[in-house]
């Protein structure tokens, strides 16, 4: 039997982004990779993309412009040197999508499907195994998937929060509503996003036919609503037994749970396409000190 993950990838779409699979493999985020392959985000041979272009792609996805603001303002709050170090040409209004691997968006406890560059079919099969009996991913399946991903390797509270934010964002953006009005994503859609870097077909059907606009559902997904559940979860951590359990583990192993939670909030607010504000833990500390000074 040929599984979905083993399904031959569709022909490459040269009319879209005009990028090679090798180039796509350098982009660690499934959403950004798909947006580049579909031609919604243009990159040059070195992986540089205009922030404005990314912002436009977000708008077409139905997102507010907050992610761009988070990117730009986040970049401005960090030192130019740190931004240069993290994202190369971001200071000049460009982001190097090839240099995100190893940056602050990388985190343990993710699905690991794209971690090695080329899609990992074994990990994709594992991921698809979390679909419900109808072959779809809803909130419950996403939660279980993330929980399992976060526990398959040592992961901090920050890792877990980013992982939840990442999956929630992707499923909220690309999910389609079923008869009961709840969003979910099919196994084929997951395969398209993570393996083929293509928009899910059932989601593509929602696209406006004018060749310019994005999704047809008028209700724009704001960043705030998109990550409301994630933010709530992060804030509730201390107030819950599970949050204290994880915090206790983080403290016992020398991690910094408080800063991790701050990070999770920051990352969540800029997550829909993947890249967060551009600063390392050290730079956040320096930035805080500078603001206080």
């Amino acid at each position: 039997m040929t599984s979905i993950a083993n399904r031959p990838p569709p022909p490459f779409r040269p009319e879209a982004g005009k990028v090679s699979q090798e180039q796509l493999n350098k982009i660690p985020c499934p959403n950004l990779r798909t947006l580049v392959n579909e031609g919604w985000i243009k990159i040059d041979k070195d992986g540089l993309a205009d922030v404005g272009n990314i912002d436009e792609a977000f708008k077409r996805l139905g997102l507010s412009s907050l992610p761009r603001q988070a990117l730009v303002k986040g970049g401005e709050s960090a030192t130019a040197a740190a931004v240069q170090e993290q994202f190369g040409h971001m200071v000049s209004g460009k982001i190097n999508l090839f240099r995100l691997t190893g940056s602050v968006i990388d985190h343990a406890g993710d699905t690991q499907v794209l971690r090695g560059g080329a899609p990992n079919k074994a990990r994709l099969e594992w991921m698809l195994g979390f679909a419900n009996k109808d072959g779809r991913f809803g909130k419950a399946e996403i939660a279980e998937l993330q929980r399992s991903a976060a526990t398959s390797e040592p992961a901090t509270l920050r890792d877990r929060a980013i992982g939840v934010a990442e999956l929630t964002a992707i499923f909220q953006v690309y999910g389609t509503k079923d008869a009961s009005g709840k969003k979910s994503l099919s196994k084929e859609g997951v395969t398209d996003l993570w393996q083929n870097s293509r928009f899910p077909e059932e989601w593509r059907a929602q696209l406006k036919s004018d060749g310019v606009g994005g999704v047809t559902n008028a209700n724009q997904t704001t960043t705030l609503s998109l990550i409301a559940g994630v933010v709530g979860m992060a804030f509730r951590q201390i107030g819950t037994a599970a949050g204290r359990a994880l915090m206790g583990i983080d403290m016992a192993t020398g991690r910094d749970p408080q800063l991790n939670q701050t990070w999770a909030m920051s990352l969540s607010q800029s997550c829909p396409a993947g890249p967060p504000t551009a600063a390392s833990k050290k730079d956040v500390d320096a930035s805080h000190q500078a603001k206080l000074g």
Partner: peptide
Amino acid sequence: VPEVMTARQYHVVRKDGPILTTLTLTV
């Protein structure tokens, strides 16, 4: 956490009127 460490965690609770106290000890 395989090959890293094993911790024992205690969640100890007591109630004084409406106040719930939880002590979370990780060793």
